[in-house]
């Protein structure tokens, strides 16, 4: 478990799972969880590359910023989903289609 490759494999699997969740899930929250998985797979990449690639701190810094942005994005996204639930009584992304008559 102490090689760069193993981390990259885990992150690729996370990325694929996130992609799968975004494409197949119909529940708004589950789609957002898929997005979080994608962000975290990228984070894992940054950290693995920074750890194994030398003394470069940029990867760690990048990961920190991504965590902060992901938190901000989750806050905004959940607020939007709550508002959707108030108006539609549903968070199924297929049912929310007033547009495109």
């Amino acid at each position: 478990m102490h090689s760069l490759e193993s981390y990259l494999y885990v992150s690729a699997i996370l990325f694929a799972l996130g992609l799968y969740a975004v494409v197949t899930r119909r529940n708004g929250i589950a789609v957002l969880m898929g997005v979080e998985l994608i962000l975290n797979s990228a984070n894992l990449n940054f950290l693995a590359f920074a750890r194994f690639g030398g003394v470069n701190l940029a990867g760690h810094i990048f990961a920190l910023f991504v965590i902060i942005m992901a938190a901000a994005e989750a806050a905004v996204a959940l607020a939007i989903v709550i508002n959707i639930y108030k108006n539609y009584q549903s968070i199924n992304v297929d049912e929310i289609s007033a547009l495109r008559q």
Binding site: G28, G34, L39, A77, Y88
Partner: peptide
């Protein structure tokens, strides 16, 4: 307007995640 923001947040988060990867 609700629908617009939901679609925007999902596509937006998704594509910036891909870009980040």
């Amino acid at each position: 307007s609700n629908e617009a923001s939901l679609k925007y947040v999902i596509y937006g988060g998704f594509s910036s995640g891909i870009m980040l990867y």
